Amino acid sequence: MKHVGILAHSVPGAAMCFRHYCETAMAELGDHNHPDVTMDCVAMGQSMPAWETGDYDTVRDILARSVDRLAAAGADFFLCPDNTAHLALERPGVDLALPGLHIAEVVARTAKAAGYNRVGVLGTRWTMEAGLYPRVLTEHGISAGIPDAESRALIQERTFGELTHGVFTEETRAEFVTVIRRLAAEGCDAVALVCTEFPLLVPPAESPIPTLESTTLVAEAAADVALDREPLPTWRGGPPDR
């Protein structure tokens, strides 16, 4: 079995990923049994000034420190449940110390296997306005639906004003569901919840169309690798090779 490292960025989502990974492995190995897992987190507050100014290279350097520490702890590969972090991890630079799963690739492969044609993308403003998900989905034959500017601003404010602090209200849930309904009206047959906190706010039963939860999907993909059902990944930062 392989030792997985979790590169944490936001606290609620990283905790969710850790738990789901362990529970996925225990479903196969039995109670209290799972492959080794190590989680490392540089406080997101250290990265926020760079996020706000678009300095992704500085964010990459910060995240790379976590990958270095995961490698030193004995991890064989890593995953990062934070989609926005992948905007920085895709920046050019020295290879990361470990190979990692690319979260957008995991989501896109799942969407393709499910037969979806157009997938709405709900994430931070940075993720929704970047080319990452439209690019990766298109590479898998799927188009991407992005919320309008007003909705993107609302989602950003709620994400960092509430969700990353562990605050989940019925009012905010209703606002997110309204955005998803608009995406469905525009032809989306599924919605990718590509911010680690969003599945905690909008569970599948609350969404008007099927959800693709990036946090749980990448945790399950990691379990497949750790349990030798899938090969080790090869991506070490930068745009992933396909």
Rank of each mutant, 00 (worst) to 15 (best):
D57N: 06
D57M: 02
T58Q: 02
V59W: 00
R60C: 03
R60D: 06
I62N: 06
I62C: 04
A64M: 05
A64K: 07
R65Y: 10
R65E: 05
R65M: 07
S66M: 04
S66G: 04
S66D: 08
R69M: 04
A71Y: 14
A72Q: 11
A73C: 07
G74S: 05
G74A: 07
D76E: 00
F77C: 04
F78A: 07
P81N: 09
P81V: 06
P81H: 10
N83W: 03
N83M: 11
T84P: 00
T84S: 01
A85S: 10
A85L: 09
H86A: 11
H86E: 15
L87I: 15
L87G: 13
A88H: 00
L89W: 00
L89A: 05
L89P: 00
E90A: 02
E90G: 01
E90T: 07
R91M: 15
P92S: 03
P92W: 00
P92D: 05
V94D: 10
L96V: 13
L98T: 03
P99R: 03
P99L: 03
G100D: 03
G100V: 01
L101I: 15
H102N: 08
E105R: 09
E105F: 08
V106T: 09
A108W: 13
R109Q: 12
T110E: 11
A111E: 00
A111R: 08
K112N: 11
A113D: 15
Y116A: 11
Y116Q: 13
N117I: 13
R118E: 11
G120P: 12
V121S: 10
T124K: 08
W126K: 13
M128Y: 03
E129K: 15
E129S: 14
A130M: 08
G131C: 08
G131W: 11
Y133T: 05
Y133Q: 08
R135S: 02
R135V: 05
V136G: 04
V136I: 15
L137V: 06
L137R: 05
L137F: 08
L137D: 00
E139S: 04
E139L: 01
G141C: 14
G141T: 14
G145I: 15
D148E: 13
D148S: 11
A149D: 06
S151Q: 06
R152W: 13
L154N: 09
E157S: 06
R158D: 04
R158A: 07
T159F: 11
T159G: 02
F160E: 07
F160W: 12
F160G: 08
G161C: 08
G161L: 03
H165M: 07
H165L: 10
V167N: 10
F168P: 02
